[in-house]
Design a protein around this nucleic acid. Structure first.
Lengths: 368, 368
DNA sequence: ATGAAAGCGCTAACAA
DNA sequence: TTGTTAGCGCTTTCAT
């Protein structure tokens, strides 16, 4: 644990017998320095294990080279058990668990965020930025995101993870790009996807098979913008096909597997439709479970589709047709937009839309 | 895009009619300031949309309040397609894909890192730190991790993502904790798991069922420290049971599903053992596929176990017994260790070992 | 309770 | 090509 009190430019300059300006030059524009001098400086640098202070640089340069990515909070996190590695040193090296669990809800939603993060990190690296991440929690004064805003050159904010007023304030200091979700005014750049259009297309695909057989839609919570857009896409396709929405059985869930199961049970009781369009995968998977149990065959008796493209959707039986968000590309795109913005603050606000992938799988293909 | 040139303490001080020292006080120790004054300052703060500069703070305070997390690179990333959102504005809103893919290799390994990250972020938040993330890539001069080191108060490094010399150098400036993987000397704090012990325990569990029936071990690549530790745990349990390792059929794979399949095919030809212990889940899953195809029943004819606890292991048929790394806790523990270290540089290096979870599932339970 | 002033470590004019 | 020097925006003694 020998952490010496960090060498500075002065130390390096001393040791190399040059001025601090020369040290700085060697690091930032090596060619502006005579090779011999440069060598001497570099030697001093490695001898002292010198690493420039990001804070000092940031202050002098008036830019940090860091981009911030801010996520909505995943509830359960706050009350995670108070792990304490340091005290229980002699814990057993393993624990045995009989595991009969069947898939956890909630957990999965994170996977999307992970992918966005990966995309953002990749692109940030390509563009020469570092990445700082933060998660929105029930922070009374939103201090985290504000702290972040003070440390980064630009901020990427996922959907509704930051309330409007806070966002507006941060945007006065640094550029902000809003990711995924409905546009939030023309003061920010946006990167999003065409939820409604893709859902409409998928609905057309289903309608083409079921003709005017009975339809059910499994909706998300009322306050979900995504859920709403998906419903709108569905509704548009249905009406465009000359059918009335009154014929459609609309069930409301909360995006969890459990709520999907409950909805399906209702359907089983009231008589199964020809197709069930779900606003997300989790609910569709829950429904699939129930249908299997009830002896309703998918896709022979009933077509089912989801939305999101989670991994479990590919592994279900039958594999679930779904629409996949290009999460990695969302992250990458956000960084690109931000990087561009950083170069020209005057340009018009951007609204980039990324294409969704409709993954046709067995659950929506009626056997001919 | 109205990004004004960021207000500073001076602006706030002017507007509130106080000195910059008072502004600073209001923000850092509000009680040291008379309530009326404080109000006046806070008003100015929100009127101006003031957000303190992290760089200036970091410089003055000599600590940034940021922790760094550095991952090994996931190869394929570098040559990701050169996405360009800004140019193709009128791309179609969706694409239709007939998806018959059966599970992708490689991708999954990332999930672990994601969880570590989540744990680290959670704990960083609890401890009042921000988190910066970086991925190790084939960076000639490792500039990314060095940049990070210059910006953070402490660094968490995953396994072998940073070469020894670089690591040693960074550790001269800031505390470093090494996560998961074999200890790398006593200059760093470590947080890791007991690979070998857990594998030994799992092996005992299997041995208890197969008696002295023939055993096969599906090993990872030779140069994998994890793979090695797992083999050692297995070997220890086998010898402790009074059996010779010469009886064991050892197959070598590369941690991919494909290599698991190939190994299983060999086994099918040469005659299946009573149990197959695999060094990771992917390979075990590949093997499971082959056995099913060959009409070998798991667990009736053959027990199979994996290692890692990936999601697909819970969804396979039969569900795969495996050992799960406590990835979230690894992340949390790393932050805890780092935070502790930041308070006392003199304390002895820590080596924290987290317990693994042995998840017993159908694939290793011979029906009685 | 508040203000004045000295840095924190670096970059970037400007001089030499 | 190299050195001198004035900030960058904040925290923190030390006075008052």
């Amino acid at each position: 644990m020998t952490v010496s009190k960090a060498a500075t430019v002065y130390d390096v300059a001393d040791r190399a017998g040059v001025s601090i300006a020369t040290v700085s030059r060697v690091l930032r524009s090596p060619d502006a320095v005579r090779p011999v001098t440069r060598e001497r400086v570099l030697d001093a640098v490695s001898a002292l294990g010198y690493v420039p202070s990001g804070s000092a640089r940031g202050l002098a340069e008036r830019r940090t080279g860091v981009l911030g990515l801010y996520f909505p909070g995943f509830d359960a996190a706050e009350d995670a058990p108070p792990l304490d590695v340091l005290s229980d040193a002699d814990a057993p090296p393993f624990a045995i668990v009989r595991d009969d669990a069947d898939g956890d809800d909630g957990h999965t939603s994170m996977l999307f965020l992970d992918e966005v993060l990966r995309g953002a990190e990749l692109e940030a690296w390509k563009q020469g930025f570092e990445l700082m991440v933060g998660v929105g929690r029930d922070d009374p004064d939103r201090s985290t995101v504000r702290d972040m805003a003070g440390r980064v050159d630009g901020l990427m904010v996922l959907a509704s993870s930051v309330p409007d007023d806070v966002l507006a304030r941060l945007a006065r200091r640094i550029p902000v790009v809003v990711l995924s979700g409905p546009p939030r005014g023309d003061h920010y750049d946006h990167v999003t996807v065409s939820n409604a259009e893709a859902m409409a297309e998928l609905t057309r695909h289903v309608l083409a098979q079921v003709g005017d057989g009975p339809l059910a839609f499994l909706a998300g919570p009322e306050d979900s913008p995504d859920g709403l857009q998906r419903w709108e896409g569905f509704a548009a396709a249905v009406t465009a096909a000359g059918r009335s929405l009154d014929d459609v059985t609309v069930l409301r869930g909360d995006f969890t597997r459990g709520s999907g199961r409950r909805a399906a049970e209702e359907l089983v009781v009231s008589g199964a439709p020809a197709a069930l369009i779900s606003a997300n995968d989790q609910m569709a998977l829950g429904a699939l479970d129930v249908f299997r149990g009830a002896g309703i065959r998918v896709p022979e008796d009933l077509l089912v589709t989801g939305f999101d493209g989670i991994e479990a959707a590919a592994l279900s039986r039958p594999p679930l047709t779904t629409i996949r968000q290009p999460m990695i590309d969302l992250g990458r795109a956000a960084v690109q937009v931000l990087a561009r913005r950083l170069e020209s603050m005057e340009a018009e606000p951007v609204l980039a839309r990324l294409p969704l992938q409709i993954l046709l799988r067995e659950s929506s293909q009626r056997p001919s």
